[in-house]
């Protein structure tokens, strides 16, 4: 049995047929071919799959595509403005906030969410807010630096 879903992804209306069990991340990657969102652990621990649903950061491996029906989804592909990187992406580039890059889409999604909710977050708070994102290269220092710098860029923008 399939369910027809329709949602806004990165500003565009998309629709498709999914099964009840189809995860949002499967819908994004396999049906919409938006493969920037990664599946790291598939057990809602690592945060590589973080996207925004109706403005909230969520783990797309632990939400059904059907639950996202009618929502507004933003993935890593929706952050940049054409060839111009989002200030948070630019900050990650400048501060080398990545090593292998696998966790980066989730780190960016969470980083952007932290700054939006807590524009003045200090380093300790940023670290706490990153508790749902794991970097297996353990490059946390530069990720935290990048988010702090991204916050400054975002407030200046």
């Amino acid at each position: 049995m399939t369910i027809s879903v329709s949602m806004t992804v990165n500003g565009k209306t998309v629709s498709g047929d999914v099964e009840g069990r189809t995860l949002l991340v499967q819908f994004l990657r396999e049906q919409l071919h938006l493969t920037g969102t990664h599946v790291g652990c598939d057990t809602s621990q690592c945060g590589a799959c973080v996207v925004h649903v109706d403005g909230q950061s969520v783990k797309s491996c632990t939400i059904l595509a059907a639950q996202a029906n009618g929502t507004e989804v933003v993935t890593i592909e929706g952050l940049a403005d054409g060839a111009t990187l989002h200030p948070m992406q630019e900050a990650f580039r400048e501060h080398h906030g990545l090593q292998c890059g696998f966790c980066t889409p989730g780190m960016l999604a969470t980083g952007y969410d932290i700054v939006r909710r807590l524009p003045d977050a200090d380093e300790a708070r940023i670290r706490r807010e990153l508790s749902g994102n794991i970097c297996r290269c353990t490059g946390y220092h530069n990720i935290v630096k990048a988010i702090k710098a991204g916050a400054e860029k975002m407030s200046a923008a």
Partner: peptide, 9 residues
Amino acid sequence: IGDPQVRNR
């Protein structure tokens, strides 16, 4: 509880 993403859901 959990992490920010879990608390959102």
